[in-house]
Simulated scan of single mutants.
Amino acid sequence: MSKELVSALNSLEEDKGIKKEIIVEALEAALTSAYKRNYGQAQNVEVEFDDKKGNIHVYAVKKVVEEVADSRLEVSIKDALELNKGYELDDEIKFEVTPKNFGRIAAQTAKQVIMQRVREAERTMVYNKFSKYQDELITGEVERQDGHFVYVDLGQVEAVMPAGDQIPGEVYRPQDKVKVYVNKVEDATKGPQVFVSRTSPGLLKRLFEEEVPEIYDGTVEIVSIAREAGDRAKVSVRSNNPDIDPVGTTVGTRGQRVQTIVNELSGENMDVVEWTDDNAQYIANALNPSEVVDVIFDPENERACTVIVPDYQLSLAIGKKGQNARLAAKLTGYKIDIKSESEVSGNSSDIIEDNE
């Protein structure tokens, strides 16, 4: 068993990256507990493991005292001096008490410790790997689905995609390849837990970075994203190079770049609008494709405004079930009150607020 154990420790260090010293320390602690459990709980013992030869020794540690009250914990100064003239009161002496049949218990204990350390090391490795992928895009394979979750194999770990992170109407079949956004990585008791999403705005940002080199290298910057996943999204962009049109670059020739993303997201419509530090113009851009006549800011609320549109553009500005205005509000961070020109006199209108 000795040679086998030393060989196993060396292999673990080479193959799993688990330092031998860590396992030896854990093994000695476990063997100490095993000895006390089987041979005498009251004793103060230490177990030493020779990681070169694999030998295991158990020592009873006794304190040098004038008079012995408990022979399991103490040794008299008289007996100590017979062993070594250098001993003094309160010194600690180790007496070997290794049982003859301790090898069997040691072997079982060593196996348990090694298996536990291997599991812990593998968990740590997986957690460290996937924690680096947090807020990133990764391609996985659909494994299965139940009433609440889609389970995605990312290699080494099974990620979960909750119902709220699944695109409405999207079908996930086993063995389908799917791009997901890593929302969160937890070091849970049962092992690393990875949560992924198809509805996060972060997914859309990473898809644009993949598809548009100018966004990836920072020439064009995504300022804000508002999504109603699977249906429609608005993305505002700005250029850090005055010679590059941010919207045209992002959309691509004949819309090819944005169409690739639309296809990836099951037909989710994309409005790409230009960000500007002129808030009125930015809000007007965000309400695309509607025309905007004027933007009037509320003097009592710096994040609220009234947007005036031509009468015939009112429905377009608000959008189906208020979606266009709602996404514009999320994109800009403004509370938007949309009125037609004929309503400016004071008639009420729907108010769309940024709920984020």
Rank of each mutant, 00 (worst) to 15 (best):
K339A: 02
P162S: 09
Q145D: 05
Y216W: 14
N263M: 06
E300V: 02
A60E: 09
R104H: 10
S197F: 03
G140Y: 07
V68Y: 07
K19E: 15
D51I: 00
K85Q: 14
D165L: 00
D146C: 06
Y87P: 09
A229T: 00
A284L: 09
A34R: 03
M270S: 04
V75P: 03
I318Y: 03
V309Q: 03
R123T: 02
Y39D: 05
T139M: 12
L204H: 00
Q112A: 14
E82C: 04
M1I: 08
M161R: 04
V194I: 15
Y172L: 08
N241R: 12
Q112L: 05
T253D: 12
D165K: 03
P310R: 08
T260L: 13
R238K: 15
V185I: 13
G267V: 12
M115W: 00
T109W: 04
T253C: 04
T253R: 14
H148I: 09
V6N: 03
R232G: 07
K85Y: 01
I352G: 05
P299Q: 10
D15E: 14
E96V: 11
Q43C: 08
D337V: 06
T32E: 14
E268V: 06
E25L: 13
V223G: 03
E209T: 02
R238D: 06
G169A: 11
S290I: 01
R119M: 00
Y151C: 04
T260Y: 04
N285R: 04
K177R: 15
F95Y: 13
Y282L: 05
R238G: 06
S236W: 04
V258G: 10
I138E: 06
E274C: 03
K53D: 10
R173M: 12
V258Y: 12
A110T: 04
V97P: 06
E274W: 01
P310F: 08
T124H: 11
Y181G: 07
D90C: 02
N38A: 15
D277M: 01
K205Q: 14
S266G: 08
I244A: 09
I23G: 01
E353C: 03
Q112T: 00
E143V: 08
L265Y: 10
I338T: 06
N10Y: 05
N183F: 03
G103N: 10
N44C: 04
I114V: 15
V118H: 00
Y39W: 09
G155K: 02
V65S: 08
L203C: 08
G86N: 15
V47T: 08
S7M: 07
T249G: 09
N301D: 15
D51W: 01
E67Y: 11
A286F: 03
Y334M: 13
S239C: 12
K321R: 15
V64I: 11
E291I: 09
V185E: 11
Q112Y: 00
N347L: 13
T124M: 10
Q259V: 02
V178H: 00
S2D: 13
D298M: 02
